[in-house]
Amino acid sequence: MKKTMNNLSGPLNRQMSDTVFVRLCILPVIILLIVINIFPLFYSLILSFTEYSARKAFSPEFIGNANYRDLLTDPTVWVRFVTTAKYVVMSVAGEMILGFSIALLLQEKFRGRGVLQTLLVLPMTMSPVIVGLMWKLFMDPNWGMFNYLLGLGRIDWASNPDINLYAIVIADIWMWTPFVMLLSIAGLSAVPQSLYEAAEIDRASWWFKFTRITLPMVSPLLMIALIFRVMEAFKVFDVPMGISGTGSSAPPLIAMKLYKDTFLTWKTGYGSALGYIVLLIVIAITSIFVKYLNKAKQED
């Protein structure tokens, strides 16, 4: 019996087994990952302990943890972290509240809901640099529509260092609210209608249903949206680059310094060290969220 079975699938087997084929298919991706992700990750870790400039013809010189010491004792770096944190809190909070609210509104059935939903998703599909440049034009103090529409007079959103952080927050919220909205819609539509009917029978008010059923049922997906947005916002570079450039009036975000040190002044070793600090912070924050997410999932 076994023999005939082997004979049946024989020709194919002799050419290539399934596992070999699967591995062959994955191979290009693995090579690509090693070359452009994993190797740089480890190489930059090594570089972060050296004095090195990628533009000069000297080989990296090992200097121990000097880069890290310099960075962590530099007060301007702390200012940048605080500014970045402010930015993360404001933009992510805005996106979560707006995105979830719009998703709630879209639960109601009305004409043109599908079209509206598609239009609302559009900002997310654009390139962030373009979004930045577009908002720069939109907020231009001389001929931008933003001030005019809000009746604000000549406010220079992009280059005034006191307020250009808010300009970036607004642009970021505009761009990424749809992301939270999409995940919220997915979460909301997964709540069985029968639960709301049961709650209606149990004489629950709208608020009671919202806080006792909707929120807990949607919270795992909201948590995922939150993780993604915090991670992204923490290392945001392209939108602020589009709005305020990288000059001295640009808001002191951490990614901005990373870019300047590494690619404008070519302090590659120093930049790598800063990159690693940012990486560790992002990992720390997300692992806290992931822990909460797992807890929320278990409670389901």
């Binding site: 639960l195 049961a198 004489r203 049922m217």
Partner: peptide, 26 residues
């Protein structure tokens, strides 16, 4: 009125205690 649904429609994220007490809490 009270309604018992075909597929029960219990609140999946709440304990049995909280499911039963739901109509009183509202």
């Amino acid at each position: 009125i009270a309604f018992v649904f075909q597929l029960f429609a219990l609140y999946p994220h709440l304990s049995v205690y909280n499911n039963i007490s739901f109509p009183l809490k509202t």
